[in-house]
Design a protein around this nucleic acid. Structure first.
Length: 436
RNA sequence: GGAGGCGUCGCCUAGUCCGGUCUAUGGCGCCCGCCUGCUAAGCGGGUUUGGGGCUACAACCCCAUCGAGGGUUCAAAUCCCUCCGCCUCCGCCA
């Protein structure tokens, strides 16, 4: 939800943002209209309500005939108040709905356009040249089978398509990656979190996921208003909902582990093989609460930690600045890190970091208490202002494994383990095919 | 899963039976000021949050807010219903 003050004072900023997203600006006019209607409704209701309260006091003090006379008078007033209150509530609902329909105002630096209009910010490392090395790289499916690490057949048998078992060294690899990520985060000052991946409707709504496309990518529990999260951004955004945080405690940085579930509706035929696109995977997500002023700088820091992690895995990747039309409703800017996948001959998204400013915290009612800036009175109690949220992937296990296996494979099907990861695998320098 | 209890403006708490003087009591903490060599103590005042009006986004006025939503009533913290959360006991169980 955007700041109503921006809507009122600078509607053109929102219109410009919508244009950059390639979206209609009708939402702005609808919201402005709703705001006017709502404010008029509030005034008329409050006026009558105040009159009713005055009457109420007279009734309480009166008695006998006098009281009966007053009751007769106030009855009419009461009916009016009731009517006006209903009108006020309705106008407020329309106002809220129209506000929620407006996506966040994109950053100045965000490239305009759609999915294909991203800007490559940098390329790190060089994709391995297997031709020069003299062998054909195997894909992660074959490597996973040779290593006894990924069992797709049984995943499909037990749970259906887009499911898998990580077995043996595959399971060890997940735990190693999680620990590597968690250690890096802890060292950087993050609080480690294991978050629930099943949440109530409020949490899912608050992050805005239900609005976008009607939540068709989200699993819902039959008969209960519970949802499986697609990322721990959901529980972590709701973590401090309905709270006023001490401004001095910001930034609050969390590194959250959770399974992630995605229906992948509408992605039929895309990435049908392997574990690039699955219905469930585990992820370590960075989630930060900070001030609006610091949000852009924190976004760069999150990107820095993502790059640090990919560096430890010795992967070749590029950083892209996602275009406005491809951003979610809550983000004003998004960077993806895309790793080179040898057998696909292209870069694929491994991590993603978004700056959501106060879009999520307004919905979820998370605010901060800061020392008063208004020098005039200096009332000493401090003031309450919105805070910003940002999120970024440290490691999404399945895609990390894909990149790792394919990038560091040897001609015999073994996998070289990057130095930084070795301590987490008991010092193992190579993952070897079973029976080799 | 069954039975019962509870939820008041940071924390604790009065009020709920018997609806109106509750514009919600008191204590702690916190903030501002006064006072005493300093400190502590003492004294005075302030201290929920959101919204609307008016404006300098001040002051001020108003409305809402007693877990959330609905109902009854001229009037609800107080009565009724639904939901959420917490606690106790029983059953089951990783």
């Amino acid at each position: 939800m955007i700041d109503p003050r921006i809507l009122r004072d600078e509607p053109d900023r929102i219109r410009a943002s919508q244009a950059k997203r390639g979206a209609s600006a009708d939402v702005v006019d609808r919201a402005l209209e709703a705001d006017a209607v709502r404010r008029a409704a509030i005034s008329t209701f409050e006026e009558k309500r105040a009159a009713q309260k005055v009457f109420g006091k007279q009734v309480a003090q009166a008695s006998g005939e006098e009281k009966q006379a007053l009751l007769a008078q106030v009855k009419e007033l009461s009916a009016q108040v009731k009517e006006l209150e209903a009108a006020q509530t309705a106008s407020d609902e329309e106002w809220t709905a129209s506000l929620k329909a407006i996506p966040n105002v994109v950053a100045e630096q965000t490239p305009p356009g759609g999915e294909d209009d991203f800007v490559v910010l940098e390329e790190v490392g060089t994709p391995r040249d297997f031709a020069a090395e003299g062998f054909e790289p195997r894909d992660h499916i074959e490597l996973g089978r040779m290593l006894g690490a990924i069992d797709l057949e049984r995943g499909a048998k037990v749970s259906g398509s887009r499911f898998y078992f990580l077995t043996g060294i595959g399971a060890q690899l997940e735990l190693a990656l999680v620990n590597l990520a968690m250690d890096q985060a802890r060292t950087a000052g993050f609080t480690q979190v294991i978050a629930p991946s099943l949440v109530r409707r409020e949490a899912m709504e608050g992050t805005g996921y239900l609005d976008q496309g009607g939540g068709e990518d989200i699993y819902r529990i039959e008969g209960e208003e519970m949802y499986l999260v697609g990322t721990s951004e959901v529980p972590m955004a709701a973590y401090h909902s309905k709270e006023i945080l001490d401004g001095a405690s910001l930034p609050r940085r969390y590194a959250s582990f959770s399974p992630c579930f995605r229906k992948e509706a509408g992605s039929h035929g895309k990435d049908t093989k392997g574990i690039i696109r699955v219905h469930w995977f585990d992820k370590v997500e960075m989630f930060v609460y900070t001030t609006l002023e610091d949000a852009a700088a924190e976004h760069e820091r999150l990107l820095g930690w993502e790059k640090e992690f990919l560096g430890k895995l010795e992967l070749a990747y590029r950083v892209v600045d996602i275009a406005a039309g491809d951003l979610g409703a809550s983000a004003i800017r998004k960077f993806d890190c895309e790793a080179w996948i040898p057998t696909q001959g292209k870069y694929r998204e491994l991590t993603s970091t978004s700056n959501c400013t106060d879009f999520q915290t307004r919905r979820l009612d998370t605010r901060g208490r800061f020392p008063a800036t208004g020098s005039a009175t200096g009332s000493g109690q401090g003031e309450i202002r919105p805070v910003a949220t940002l999120n970024g992937t440290l490691t999404a296990i399945t895609r990390t494994i894909v990149a790792l296996l394919e990038t560091h494979q040897q001609a015999d099907g073994s996998i070289r383990v990057p130095a930084a990861l070795q301590p987490y695998l008991g010092g193992l320098e190579f993952l070897k095919p079973i029976g080799a």
